[in-house]
């Protein structure tokens, strides 16, 4: 997730203040990201990690991770963040076709990711072609 931020450019308005990692649902990733936030920055922006239990609680995020258990909330999440510039990351087969910008999938016991550049660009984000090259599928 941290690596994705190196290949995506957020609009100017998102390049000051905290870089917000949002998480919808429960995942051990929250603790990891919180730990990472203590030592890392995204560009010059310090990291803030926020946890949401549902789409209705969402506020401004740079990157929003929707856990597998909350996959059914994706459409509500998209509605909630559509006016902003949020990279939506999911981990459920098929969600790359349903509005997620990046979707984690398991192939041969390894984590891979699919990308939907159209969804990403709709959020006014610029994606590097290098990231596209690393994705297993690009839509």
């Amino acid at each position: 997730m941290y690596n994705f931020t190196k290949y995506i450019e957020w609009p100017k308005a998102y390049q000051t203040g905290y870089f917000v990692f949002g998480i919808v649902g429960d995942t051990p990733l929250y603790d990891e990201l919180t730990k990472m936030a203590q030592t890392k920055k995204i560009g010059n922006q310090p990291i803030l990690v926020k946890k949401f239990s549902s789409a209705s609680e969402l506020d401004k995020c740079h990157l929003l991770y929707v856990t597998k258990g909350k996959s059914s909330e994706l459409s509500n999440v998209i509605k909630k963040v559509k006016s902003g510039s949020t990279l939506i990351v999911t981990e459920q087969e098929g969600l790359v076709d349903k509005g997620a910008g990046i979707n984690f999938v398991v192939r041969d016991n390894k984590q891979k990711f699919e990308m939907n550049t159209k969804s990403i660009e709709t959020q006014k984000l610029k994606v590097s072609s290098n990231l596209e090259a690393l994705a297993i599928t690009v839509k």
């Binding site: 941290y2 690596n3 190196k6 290949y7 990472m36 890392k40 041969d108 016991n109 390894k110 984590q111 290098n130 990231l131 690393l134």
Partner: peptide
């Protein structure tokens, strides 16, 4: 390392998966 480049990250993941396998 969180700063590990993506290509290295993928290669490392491959190595880890091979060890677990």
């Amino acid at each position: 390392d969180y700063d590990m480049e993506f290509e290295n990250l993928m290669a490392t993941q491959e190595k880890i998966a091979n060890l677990f396998s």
